[in-house]
Write a protein that binds this DNA or RNA. Structure first.
Lengths: 168, 168
DNA sequence: TCGATGATTGTTATAATATAACGCATCGAG
DNA sequence: CTCGATGCGTTATATTATAACAATCATCGA
């Protein structure tokens, strides 16, 4: 319970974060989800998902491409973009509009609106699913007669860890 | 008072919206603001501001460039991007991240966080300055020890007018 | 098993958005 | 007037994303 409480307190990763395990978990969940939906998580898509999950920093499509080429020499931009499109459609990753970059989704099981906190120093992006924010947004939109189909909420600033260490 | 109440009810423009007047007002306010700040609203920047204010739909940098070339034949991408940067710095326009486009700021006088409602059908973008949304966002970030420096809040969907007219 | 069908991937080219770098012009403070 | 900073012109290039079409693969019914 201590661990789950900690992750409820901050969506940012701590120093002790076991990222290998984190990635494997994400890949397993993706496989399960796709199986349940009859979607094909091919080796290529799985590989791209793994690369996007390389860290908790959003990663650009061309960075993914460069990495992908190691395992997949013939890869070209469409190779990556098509895989990214698939992963987004299935809620396995999110696109960060303000960075033109992509990041793994922490809760792909259920559809959700998410908000991102993006640290300008370390680059980490933490995904929130804050009902209060979503409610405030939907409430105001409803008052104006606007039907919200998609929310892009990205907050950039300084994460707790970087704020604590004011070094270069 | 009827007009101002109407604009308080919806930030979307109505059919009777006098856009020429709207643009001139925006340009005047920009001139005043820049004068007050000792910033130089040159003819080029003024022209770009006018073009961004061409409608209430966000407009791409290259669309601005194409229009700009009429009055300014030698214009090239840096011409436009430099002007856009200046206008953003001074809060005269906003960049819409999810569209890679730019739109005039409706309240440049004071710094503010804004939220945008973007209609996927007519393309119009309405700028909000909703304290409840800003509060919800800042509250949650503060709980997590995150210092927000910039907010990107863009809601796409259907505006009231387009919702009322379900034509093609 | 076979072939039809649709989904996936390969491949080449190009579109769309944005910036680097350098030099000249212009403005305004002193 | 001169200097330094700012603005702008110009060329080239970086970065992000998509179009279009061919080849391959998976699946499923005949």
């Amino acid at each position: 319970m201590v661990r789950s409480r900690a992750s409820a307190v901050t969506p940012f990763q701590t120093a002790s974060h076991d990222h290998d395990n984190c990635v494997e978990t994400a890949l397993d969940r993706a496989a399960q989800l796709c199986a349940a939906r009859g979607a094909r998580l091919t080796e290529l898509r799985r590989q791209v998902l793994r690369l996007v999950w390389g860290g908790h920093e959003p990663v650009g499509a061309y960075a993914v491409l460069e990495s992908l080429k190691r395992s997949h020499p013939g890869a070209a931009p469409p190779t990556v973009y098509r895989a990214l499109d698939f992963l987004i459609e299935h809620g396995l990753i999110h696109r960060i509009e303000s960075l033109n970059a992509y990041v793994g989704c922490s809760r792909p099981e259920r559809p959700h609106v998410s908000q991102f906190l993006i640290c300008g120093k370390c680059g980490a992006a933490a995904e929130l699913d804050d009902p209060a924010i979503a409610r405030a947004v939907l409430r105001r939109a409803a008052e104006l007669g606007f039907v919200v189909e998609q929310q892009t909420i990205e907050l950039s600033g300084l994460c707790p860890r970087c704020r604590a260490r004011p070094d270069a």
